[in-house]
């Protein structure tokens, strides 16, 4: 199988502070991969560095390659990156209320996505825009609407239609339903999955919501402290977690727990760049020993493995 996205040794730094370190990540063609972790774990920065849209003075290192693009994406100039963005990789952001230009009609914003990459000529782009809206279940009148006339859920569907306009090889969604009402979350998730399946696009789905990952993704990567700590098929990772952080995360979101008390992971996520050396989770981990001061090696294959000195599920606890 041809991998659409191959990330090797990705790091993100702001001045001298490392925010993301040594992230390896591959997404196969048409594969749906989840990226989970608490706020501040580096999920969004990973996504933004793939797209080359990091904020000023935040720098990415390492390697990001996309199938069918013959150059390295990390450090590529704007001219080359702008050809990749919106055509090969597209992104749906977290906040739909501010993601669209308030002074431009929806139809023009949609058509522009196709006109930029010259995938369609002007009259055809108009028709295609109506078709894109139809595929996210919005009426054709939406073409004439301005963003402020739509609800948050409707706007996010427009953003999704925008991202899928040029049938990208990879769609990145960064917490696309977090800002939405619970009632419209399911619809938007359904449209995302249907959108990528229809186009055989791959999906990199970022969220902190484990239930969402379970319904949307086939494979999952768990991030903590700017590192990938565990990876594997969703069913595998969620039923038999190996990394102690994954274990804690699952316990914290377990709704069928018999005890009445909410289980939490002790302590807080340290501020950016203040994670401990060695295993990034050791300051909050009940199983940590002196050994954890060394960075734990990756155990297993790249698509299914973990980085923990004292993994769960080996019968020693």
């Amino acid at each position: 199988m041809n991998d659409v996205l191959t990330v090797r040794g990705l790091s993100v730094t702001v001045r001298d502070t490392a925010l993301v370190s040594d992230v390896d990540l591959t997404v196969g063609a048409g594969e749906r991969v989840g990226l989970i972790g608490e706020s501040g774990s580096g999920k969004s920065l990973t996504a933004l560095s793939i797209l080359g849209l990091l904020p000023e003075d935040v720098r990415a290192g390492g390697s990001v390659r996309l199938d069918g693009v013959d150059h390295e994406l990390v450090g590529a100039d704007e001219r080359r990156m702008s050809r990749v963005r919106g055509r090969d990789i597209a992104m749906v952001f977290q906040e739909p209320m501010t993601a669209l230009n308030p002074t431009m009609r929806i139809g023009d914003q949609l058509a522009e996505a196709m006109l930029i990459h010259k995938t369609l000529a002007k009259p055809a782009a108009r028709t295609a825009a109506a078709d894109l809206l139809d595929r996210v279940q919005l009426p054709a009148e939406t073409l004439r609407a301005y963003p402020h006339q739509l609800s948050g859920g409707q706007r996010q569907r427009v953003v999704l239609a925008l991202a899928l306009a040029n049938d990208p090889a990879l769609l990145i969604c960064d917490e696309p339903t977090t800002a939405l009402d619970v009632t419209v979350q399911a619809l938007v998730l359904d449209l995302i999955v249907r959108g990528v399946v229809d186009r055989s696009s791959a999906l990199l789905f970022i969220t902190h919501d484990l239930a969402v990952v379970a319904t949307v993704c086939e494979r999952v990567l768990v991030m903590y402290g700017g590192r990938v700590v565990e990876a594997g098929p969703v069913a595998e990772v969620f039923t038999r977690p190996r990394h102690r952080y994954t274990e804690g995360l699952l316990a914290a979101s377990d709704l069928e727990t018999t005890s009445r008390r909410l289980t939490t992971i002790p302590g807080n996520v340290p501020p950016a760049g203040r994670f401990p050396s060695g295993c990034v989770f050791r300051t909050r981990c009940a199983h940590a020993t002196a050994l954890c001061e060394e960075t734990p090696p990756w155990t297993g294959s790249e698509t299914a493995g973990f980085a923990c000195h004292h993994p769960a599920g080996v019968g020693n606890d």
Binding site: R85, R87, F93, L100, E112, I116, L162, A163
Partner: peptide
């Protein structure tokens, strides 16, 4: 600093194009 300018760049507009087409009127 607006989100829609980031959206415009995610679409494939270069920074100056994004500012010209989406920023000017705002």
């Amino acid at each position: 600093r607006e989100d829609y300018l980031r959206t415009a760049r995610a679409k494939g507009l270069r920074p100056f194009q994004a500012l010209w087409r989406h920023g000017l009127r705002n």
